[in-house]
Design a binder for these strands. Structure first.
Lengths: 151, 151
DNA sequence: CTAAAAACCTAGTAAATTACTTGGTTTTTT
DNA sequence: AAAAAACCAAGTAATTTACTAGGTTTTTAG
């Protein structure tokens, strides 16, 4: 399945951007420092995020990246789609040619799971994450959020 | 995340077993032939499935594997857990030490997604798959099912 | 107007994982 | 006794992933 560390990194970086980028653009060097993701790796991820129209870039000193839309309008599924190409758990990437050119025994199972995951992640915006409402809304203590935001 | 080809192979093989193993045990050589999975790889998977008490083995000629429970009582999540260890999308395997020993920004998101996937796959039994009710019950034409079962 | 900060780009590489191979042994049936 | 099967351990090829190296271009601040 396409749900790897790459996607996690991308969501984390976008969340960092949502938290720290209200006024000025945020440089990848800053995100790299805070989230401990290699700068050059971030560059590669943000190239994809930009192609996916999720962020805008500002070049030159004082530049960096900005969210291309507001927090409420950027969903986790979009981020993962942008960097991982797809959230797909089938073997045949949904083509249905997994067994001698026909659908394999479990094709529909994986297809349905894929859809399920995509639906789940499509319902969660960056705003939800900032406001601590990831998924079912697992509790996160107020001071943990503070620590994470203020570092 | 732990949702790889290994898990898919395991579910496919177990489904093959459910379909072909009503009377006699099914040898891995048979499954290997039908599903095009390397025999030795199947052996490794079935060692784990046996440790997970999902199948029983019968040694000697005419031997093979049998489901350890009936189709209704074996769920996809159990199969994947047995071969992939866990269906976990967090970076820290649920430990919550992903960022300087604290939970990372997106920990709860991945935790919730993990739970979601696990719940989904826990609701689908081998019997459901045999009867073509994977997940939301995507339609599969009757003759496709025939082809798959009768090969 | 120049130095520096940033994005932007390409290619390569190290590490990890995955799928598979090899070459056995043990058990049990015919 | 031969053969069919499970069972086992170690190694390997292929792929993917995360990261590094080494640039260029753009733009701002001084």
């Amino acid at each position: 399945m396409k749900l790897t560390t790459r996607g996690r990194y991308a969501v984390t970086a976008m969340l960092d951007l949502a938290i720290h980028g209200e006024n000025r653009p945020v440089s990848l060097a800053d995100i790299s420092g805070r989230q401990e993701i290699s700068l050059s790796y971030l560059e590669q991820l943000f190239a994809k995020l930009r192609r996916g129209a999720l962020v805008d870039s500002v070049r030159g000193p004082g530049g960096g990246y900005r969210l291309a839309h507001n927090r409420e309008a950027i969903f986790v599924a979009q981020i993962i789609d942008a960097v991982d190409e797809s959230v797909d758990v089938t073997n045949c990437q949904g083509k249905g040619n997994c067994h001698h050119g026909e659908v394999c025994l479990t094709h529909h199972l994986w297809q349905d799971l894929s859809d399920q995951i995509h639906d789940f992640l499509s319902g969660i915006s960056l705003a939800d994450l900032v406001n601590n409402r990831g998924g079912k809304g697992a509790a996160r203590s107020a001071d943990t959020v503070q620590k994470l935001i203020l570092q």
